[in-house]
């Protein structure tokens, strides 16, 4: 399972951080920390299946609907 974030859609609301703090965090500027490592589209490494519920919640609660779960 991977998580994909469209960083052009993402508006740094940070709601994902409450749902899946193991995966999402904000940097010191209050931006999604994936912005420090990717432009346009962030694709995670393979993630543990135990995170699925939390990631689904994060995808549901994203105001910009920028998070997708693959696999």
């Amino acid at each position: 399972m991977k998580v994909i974030v469209d960083l052009n859609k993402c508006n740094d609301h940070g709601q994902c951080v409450y749902s899946a703090p193991e995966v999402f965090s904000l940097n010191g500027r209050g931006e999604l920390s994936f912005r420090d490592e990717a432009r346009d589209i962030y694709v995670s490494d393979q993630l543990d299946e135990s995170l699925r519920d939390a990631l689904e919640e994060a995808a549901d609660i994203c105001p910009m609907q920028a998070i997708e779960i693959e696999g």
Binding site: D12, G28, G30, E31
Partner: peptide, 10 residues
């Protein structure tokens, strides 16, 4: 604003 403080105040 205060984007970096959302978690703290929540």
């Amino acid at each position: 604003g205060f984007a970096q403080s959302h978690m703290k105040y929540r």
